[in-house]
Simulated assay, not measured.
Amino acid sequence: MVKPTLLVLAAGMGSRYGSLKQMDGVGPNNEAIIDYSVYDAVRAGFGKVVFVIRHSFAKEFQEVFSAERFGGRIAVEYVFQELEYLPEGLAVPEGRVKPWGTNHALMMAADAIHEPFAVINADDFYGAEAYETIGAYLKELDGSRGRYCMVAYDLNKTLSDNGTVSRGVCGVDAEGNLTSMVERTQIERMPDGQIVFHDGGADEPLAEDTPVSMNLFGFTPDYFAHSKSYFAEWYARNSGNLKAEFYIPTMVNKLIGDGEASLRVLRSAAQWHGVTYKEDKPALMAAIERMIAEGKYPRNLWK
């Protein structure tokens, strides 16, 4: 049975957080969120981790997150996302400085991944259950095309106490497949306890258990060819917008809408943890301490 690969999107510097938060210590021995992600992936049977990074911090990153750090338990590769890394015939529009988005970052790994793979954000703590769930699904997809998956969380387990968040709100059919994914911004819990999003108009309520995407997707390698092909179309429509981004949900919605792929929604009852704001870090560190006390993680992760 093939071992899936973990693709870690680590090229973002975290503008709101104000530092290279992918490398910020949150564990008792200065482990980063990435350490826990890789640890959980190893336990779930993943065979390789591929990091998408930028040349500007490559040396620093590679010195920290190497195969040696992980005790040789998993193969490690690095690929690079840069503004000018575009399909042949396309050029960076004058004045463009913003990265091209998560699906563009994913495209950078096309030559490094030839097996089913999961995609994660470097700064999200997904939990062991999520890796076990998606790993088991991906192991059954070797040789498949157009059968993708994602892990969805209950909205109420993905909020921050320190500000609003953006989440991909998922529509799911009776068979458990994704029908739509809509990005909702400025989601927060109001003083009356209700969860709402403020997307420019009147406040709209959302149910506590609304399934939302935290960018934990599973794909087979054919997804790279779809992405490269559609990026040219997307670029033609959006190159004039210097802030437009080519997101993973953009590509997923396109493939589902065209009937070229299905995406199974794997539900997780776990509590998601992340560091959207600096003030989120103490809560994450406390949660890790609780999980260590419960025996979910060793105190010295890689010893």
Rank of each mutant, 00 (worst) to 15 (best):
R145P: 02
G135H: 11
E129K: 11
D142M: 09
G135V: 06
A122G: 15
Q81K: 07
R96M: 10
F125G: 03
E140K: 14
Y137I: 01
E140S: 12
A112V: 09
I113G: 01
V97I: 15
G95P: 01
M150C: 14
W100C: 03
L83E: 01
G135N: 08
P93V: 12
P87N: 06
P93N: 13
V92G: 01
A128V: 09
G143R: 09
A109T: 01
G143Y: 10
A128T: 14
A136L: 04
Y137G: 02
V151Y: 02
A105I: 07
L83F: 08
M108S: 08
V119Y: 00
G143W: 10
V97P: 11
P99N: 09
M108W: 04
V97N: 13
Q81M: 08
E132K: 10
A136N: 10
M150K: 05
V119N: 03
Y137K: 04
E115Y: 07
L138I: 13
G127D: 06
S144E: 06
D123C: 09
K139T: 10
T133R: 05
G135L: 03
L106I: 14
Y85K: 15
M108F: 01
D111Y: 06
A118Q: 00
A118H: 01
D142N: 12
A110W: 10
P93Q: 08
Y148N: 09
I113L: 07
G127S: 03
I113N: 00
I120Q: 07
E88V: 04
S144N: 13
Q81R: 05
K98M: 13
P93E: 08
D142H: 10
T133H: 04
I134Q: 00
A109N: 00
L138D: 04
E140C: 02
R145M: 03
I134E: 00
D142Q: 12
V151G: 04
G101T: 09
Y85N: 12
A91H: 12
A110Q: 13
E129S: 11
S144Q: 14
I120G: 05
D124A: 09
P116Q: 09
G127W: 02
D142A: 15
A136T: 14
F117K: 04
A110C: 11
W100P: 02
E84V: 01
E88I: 02
P87T: 02
D142S: 11
F125P: 06
G95M: 13
A110F: 13
H104T: 07
D124T: 15
A128I: 11
N103L: 05
Q81E: 14
K139Y: 01
A122F: 05
T133Q: 07
T133E: 03
A136R: 15
